[in-house]
């Protein structure tokens, strides 16, 4: 009986030590970056398509497309706020900030330029679209490179 008890205590202590070790290992390793979000990915892909399509319209007066522009900017705001609200998601949040900032030179800056100039030249639009498209690709690329929730222990 005492042999069984000794065996029991021996193995229980080893298992407990092992589980405590794993728990400490996990607790000490908070994720470095947010997990992948299907919603965030979809937002980025949809906004890329909408933005590039709207940029094509910049050969026409800004005022003729004000409603569409406001609608796009609202969707961009939603994507930014969603990114900002997720823990460990600072890098993606920063990407959205740069993309939508009217003082920078991607989508936000393009829309400001369109408003200031009234119309933009086809050559400029074509080149700016390349840059904005690549910018969205970096957002999409980062999101799709994150760990899926199903991969987490």
């Amino acid at each position: 009986m005492s042999d069984v008890r000794t065996w029991y205590v021996y193995w229980l202590s080893r298992i407990t030590a092992g589980l405590v070790f794993i728990a400490l290992l996990s607790l000490g390793c908070a994720p470095s970056i947010a997990l992948y979000s299907e919603r965030a990915y979809d937002q980025a892909v949809t906004l890329k398509a909408s933005s590039l399509r709207l940029m094509d319209r910049a050969v026409e007066p800004y005022n003729d497309h004000e409603q569409s522009i406001e609608s796009l900017l609202f969707e961009m705001d939603k994507a930014y706020e969603y990114a900002r609200g997720r823990p460990a998601n600072e890098l993606s949040t920063r990407q959205w900030e740069i993309l939508r900032d009217p003082d920078r030179h991607l989508l936000g800056g393009f829309i400001r330029r369109w408003e200031e100039q009234e119309t933009l030249s086809p050559f400029f639009i074509s080149e700016a679209k390349e840059q904005v498209g690549h910018a969205f690709d970096t957002v999409i690329g980062l999101e799709s490179g994150k760990i899926r929730p199903s991969e987490v222990n």
Binding site: S92, G109, F124
Partner: peptide, 17 residues
């Protein structure tokens, strides 16, 4: 000049990625 600045912004986006 605008496009050059956009390239700089894109460089920052890529670095974040």
């Amino acid at each position: 000049e605008w496009l050059l600045r956009s390239k700089r912004d894109l460089v920052e986006m890529e670095a974040l990625k």
